[in-house]
Design a protein around this nucleic acid. Structure first.
Lengths: 213, 213
DNA sequence: GTTGACAACATACCCGGTAGTATGTTCATC
DNA sequence: GATGAACATACTACCGGGTATGTTGTCAAC
């Protein structure tokens, strides 16, 4: 239910399928999730799913795409703020972490999708279908990476190897998809507080002096 | 082949099976790996594997166990050095990261095993078999966690929530299992250098002042 | 207000792959 | 030369992806 996205949303039936699929893929992983599992969660049958998606990997890819687009839309407003690179990075990182927490089901699918691609555990047809998604994911990652390089040139960050630093930071920011679990009565401020600590850890790791405002 | 562990090693036939299984599980994940895949990598058939292991999950559990025991043995010599907590943590963290790189196949299985347990995606019988492994894994993690707490009490580290800090640090130290890929002609010193940068990132994230010696 | 057409599913079925088993086969060791 | 370990071979049972076909509601045209 409650996909907190009005615009850019496909019809509600597909949305329900996406949500259910994301949950199942999150809980059991791609390979261990059957189409019947997803259908069962919808109180429906395979017929409904195969009416909208041509294959299991097609469904997975759509969950992947949707999760990623949510991230793009979340950080979009911040990309052209006049701030310095380090500050833009901080703001975007915080938004990103909050996204990881609030849309956890989808983000784990994104993660597994990247993993599947890196491992090459896909059929040739799937690889071409995935290629554009992976490409788009890489460009998303580049946004953060470029800011890191810029911030270092500004003298606001100090680290050695850019590639390694970017990997470490990215996994740090994504890590809530693994260890976060929702608490009863948790507010948006609580989540933002967690995000603040994650970003603070990353910033210190990147050699940024001052704490968070 | 080349399991760089002499002692504590089961007979060589089982060792080859473990190694092959670790590779397959790393490349495709547990669910997507078939027993025939493992057998194929051994130039053998299922018969060989089922002669030594009673089930697929049993094999997986043994890879899990073996990978974890390697970690225990690696850090064991450092546990009772006279150093301060922050210094012991640094040394153990470095060893741990190097372990993640050099025994990557096994460590990814350990990771997936923990994941499977957290997701609850196991049958009741498997859960009890896994329980002791997970427990042992938790105690391994506690070693690092306790050192974090001690180092903070010493005034050598500064962070807010211990649980969050530990999660962030642990995923940072484990992250090479995801992004590291071996380069041709890479030496042990190269790997240690990578480890140094990972640990440096984590230490800074934990609010430790001085750089690495 | 009936019919026809189509979307949105459900039902029933097929079939390949895979975990696990049952049964050889070989070789060493006593 | 008998016995058992260490496999290979052959087979079964079942699950799950995909398909083919039926069913229901809606909406437009006449």
């Amino acid at each position: 239910m409650a996909l907190s996205v009005g615009e850019h949303m496909p019809d509600s039936s597909r949305a329900d399928i996406l949500e259910a699929a994301a949950h199942c893929f999150m809980e059991r992983g791609y390979a261990a999730t059957s189409i019947d599992d997803v259908a069962r969660r919808l109180d429906a049958t395979k017929g409904r799913i195969y009416h909208h998606y041509s294959s299991k990997s097609d469904l997975f890819a759509d969950v992947f795409r949707f999760g990623m687009e949510m991230n793009y839309r979340a950080i979009e407003p911040l990309r052209r703020s006049g701030e310095k690179a380090v500050e833009r990075w901080r703001q975007m990182a915080l938004i990103h972490v909050v996204q990881m927490i609030t849309t956890r089901q989808f983000q784990r699918v994104v993660w597994e999708g990247v993993e599947m691609h890196l491992r090459g555990a896909t059929t040739p047809e799937q690889r071409t279908a995935f290629a554009e998604l992976i490409e788009r994911r890489s460009r998303y990652s580049d946004i953060f990476r470029d800011l890191l390089a810029e911030a270092r040139d500004d003298g606001d960050m100090r680290f050695e190897n850019l590639g390694i630093a970017n990997q470490l930071v990215f996994i740090t920011l994504n890590s809530p998809i693994f260890w976060y679990s929702p608490r009863a009565g948790e507010t948006a401020r609580d989540i933002e507080e967690i995000g603040r600590q994650v970003v603070a850890f990353a910033l210190h790791g990147l050699g940024v002096r001052k704490g968070n405002p």
